[in-house]
Nucleic acid binder design. Structure first.
Lengths: 233, 233
DNA sequence: ATTTACAAGATTGCATACACTTTATGTATT
DNA sequence: AATACATAAAGTGTATGCAATCTTGTAAAT
C-alpha cells in the first residue's frame, strides 16, 4: 500500500477514488463531461468536495479541467500516448534494475502470490482481471521500497489505462499473465538484463496492441470525424 | 515552457505560483504553517482559492496537508531525501540518453544560451543564481521534447530544493556552473556514456553536500532544539 | 437558407457562513 | 507544583448563494 494516502478532506476521497476507478476501468470514457453538480448529487456531497477531487485528478492527468468549462475525462493524443508509454518503459526498467539488486526471496514470494490471484480470475472476471494486471506492475514498483518510484508507476499505469480506453478496441491490449510469470523468473535469478528485456517486450506488446493501429484513433473533435461523413459536393 | 499550465481557477494560480516559488527559494522553510486565512488576506482572495492552491502543492509533495490540521511546508525525512535523489538520478539519466540520440545543434545552442545567463549573474544575485541552476536541469528535460519527462523533472527538482532547505546549510549545495558546461560538451559530442557519468557526478556532488552531514538535520519540533539551550540545573 | 443577435438555461468561479476539530489558555483539584 | 478538566480562540470542513461565463435555442435580419 502506498503511504501517500489522500489527505485533505475526508469526504472527497470516496469521490476521488470512485472517479479514478471508473476512468481506469473505462466505464467513464475519454471526453465524457464531469459536471460538479450531478456528481455531487450522486455522492450526496456538495460541489466543493467534488471540485477537490477533480483538481487532484486533473493534476494526475486523468481529468482535463478548463476554466469556466468544467472537467472531463482526459483525451490523450496519440503523441502523448507514445510519450507516456516511453516514460513507462523508463520507469519500469528502473524497477527491474532495482529489484534485481535486492534479495529475491520475499520479492518473488509476494509476486507469486499476486500471480496466483491473476490466474484464479483469468477467464472469469474480466474487470477484475484487468485491474490485477495493472496492480502487478504497481506491486513490482512498491517492492523496490521507493515511495516515489511507486507513486510514479502507479500514476503512469493509470494513464496507460486511459490510453487503452481511447485507442485500443476494448480489452484487446491486456497484459499477458504468462509474461508476468517470465518476469518473475528473471527476477528470481537476479538476472537484470533478462528482466529488463522481458519487461520491455511485455510493455511493447501492450503498446503495440494499443497503438499500432493508428487508424483506430478516435478523433478528439467531432469536426474531424464528421468531415469524413460530409458528402463531397 | 511546459504546456501543462495551471488550469482550474484563474485566481488561484498566482497563489499557487507564489507559494511554490517561496518554498523553492527557501523563503518558506520546511515545517512552516500555511494557514488559509492569512494567505488569503495576503493575496486578497478567499480561502477557497488558497485551498485550491494548497491541494495542488500537496499533490506535488511540496506541502503537507493533514485533516483538520491544515497545511505546512513539507518536511522530507532523510530517507525520503535519498529516495528522491535516487529518482532524480534515474530521470536525469534518461534525459541524457535521449538528448544524446538527438540532433545536438539546436540543443547545444539553447543550453549555451542558458549557461551564459548563469555565468552573467554568478557572484551577483544569489537567489537568481540558484533558480537558474535549477532551471538548467528543467531545460535539459524540456529539450527532450517529452512533456511528461519534463514535468517529472520539474517536480523533482523542486523537491530537491526543499531537501536542500531542510538539510544543507544555506546555499552550500548549489550546482556548479562549470559542471553544467561539461555536461553540455558531452551532449555536443553525442557521447551518452560521458554525459550520463558527468550528470551522475554532478548530482551526487549536490546530494553529498546536502546529505552527507546528517548531524546537520534540523529537528522538526522546537522542543528538541530548546532542550539543548536549557541550562542544566 | 444562412447568418447574426439575443435571451434562457445550465454550469462554473468565488466568497462567505456555520459547524466542527484542534490547539491554546485558564482554573480548580489534588 | 502537577494534573485534569473546562473554556476560549483559532483554524479547518463543508454547504450554499450569487455573480460571471458558457451553451443552447429561437427569432430577426440579410
Amino acid at each position: 500500500m502506498t503511504k501517500n494516502m489522500y489527505k485533505s478532506s475526508r469526504r472527497s476521497f470516496p469521490v476521488y477514488d470512485s472517479l479514478r476507478q471508473a476512468i481506469i476501468e473505462q466505464a467513464l470514457k475519454p471526453g465524457v463531461k464531469l459536471p460538479e453538480d450531478s456528481i455531487g448529487e450522486t455522492f450526496g456531497v456538495s460541489r466543493t468536495i467534488v471540485r477537490n477531487a477533480l483538481v487532484r485528478l486533473d493534476a494526475e492527468g486523468l481529468v482535463d479541467m478548463q476554466p469556466n468549462r468544467g472537467a472531463s475525462v482526459a483525451e490523450p493524443t496519440i503523441e502523448e500516448a507514445y510519450d507516456i508509454f516511453d516514460m513507462r518503459q523508463c520507469l519500469e526498467r528502473e524497477v527491474m534494475h532495482r529489484l534485481c539488486r535486492m534479495d529475491p526471496g520475499p520479492i518473488v514470494k509476494a509476486l507469486k502470490g499476486h500471480l496466483a490471484e491473476e490466474e484464479k480470475v483469468l477467464g472469469k472476471d474480466s474487470t477484475r482481471s484487468i485491474r490485477l494486471a495493472g496492480e502487478f506492475h504497481i506491486l513490482l514498483a512498491e517492492l523496490t521500497g521507493s515511495q516515489i518510484l511507486a507513486n510514479y508507476v502507479n500514476e503512469i499505469v493509470s494513464r496507460c489505462s486511459l490510453i487503452l480506453a481511447r485507442f485500443a478496441q476494448a480489452h484487446s491490449a491486456e497484459c499477458g499473465v504468462e509474461e508476468h510469470a517470465e518476469i518473475i523468473e528473471a527476477i528470481a535469478r537476479g538476472d537484470a538484463e533478462h528482466a529488463v528485456t522481458r519487461m520491455h517486450g511485455h510493455l511493447r506488446g501492450v503498446q503495440d496492441r494499443a497503438l499500432l493501429n493508428p487508424e483506430d484513433e478516435r478523433e478528439e473533435n467531432i469536426a474531424a470525424i464528421l468531415s469524413r461523413y460530409r458528402p463531397k459536393d
